[in-house]
Amino acid sequence: MSVLFSTARARRFARSTEMSLLTIGVLGFLVLAAGSHGGLLHGNAIRGVLTYLTVPILIGLAQLVVLAAGQMNLSVGALGGFLAVFTAGLMADHGVPAPLAIGVAVLAGALIGAANGVLVVATQINGFIVTLATMTILLGLQYRVAGTRTIDAGSPGLRRFGTLAVLNIPVIFIVALAVAGALAFVLRRSLAGRRLLASGGNPLAAQLSGISNNKSLILAHTLSGLIIGIAAVVTIASAPGVNKSIGGDWLLPSFAAPIIGGAALAGGSVSVLGMVFAAFIVRLVDLARAQYSLDPSWVNFTVGAVVLGTVVIGRIREVRQAKNTSPGTGDDSRSIGSENRSIGSQA
């Protein structure tokens, strides 16, 4: 993932955040492996770990790209669930060949994502409430398509793809990494990606530089939808069947990984690599839970506490860095009296 780095300075910075996440991840994994008396190091175990890491990475990426533009997408799970049952339905009920169905899923994801973006731009209401509305609609569509049944896509080829592994590394996991790499590349190297980040980082400056913030928003939501389309395909390929509950538990993890991974919530700065590591760490929590037969609730509790801790610590660090500003109260508003003054005062 060399595409993530460009400068000596940025590299140092990236290392400090991402290396610590990686260190935590590796150490955690080793501890768990030791605790399992090496069981976790067996090929099958590793394959299982990575298989169930695939969807968390993809939905994290889908959330990350809208966070980059200073937006959020609540419809991640509902869109994924809808696309999964819809695509599986196409194949099972209408005999649509797998490659075509996959294409339809990804395209539909991108289109619905674009619709989210257009709605945000047109209503000028924050993305939260717009995607809440589309989430509601998509949930309804998912229920309507799936009903009470579990749909098996019935495509042996797709199923094989879902379980195929190279050296015990599942192909779908490689797909997720490829998507991550592609997204990192787009955000890092492409003009559109840079503009997207600029809009998220400082919309006014972006506008003054002739960048269309509206285009950036729509692009971010479109990419988000597209990645969710891929996540839906991966789900169909790797799960024995899809039903109306698919995607129901995607929302919270989709935020957890990017936030722990170091995405600036105000937009403008994201770390794809950090997000991937964070998704891995969240996965480890789940593994630990399984290994020590703990209650599943520990996972949510731990992840929630970690996310809270991350935002609080991150904020404290930020405040320390800019300690010249007076204390603020509450979100969505800059603290009063904190306008940046000229350097005259420091002389």
């Binding site: 400068t7 980040l197 600029a198 400082n202 972006a206 700065s269």
Partner: peptide, 12 residues
Amino acid sequence: VHQERNLIHEFS
């Protein structure tokens, strides 16, 4: 060159 500084802080 505007009076307010209009830069993207995260960018190089």
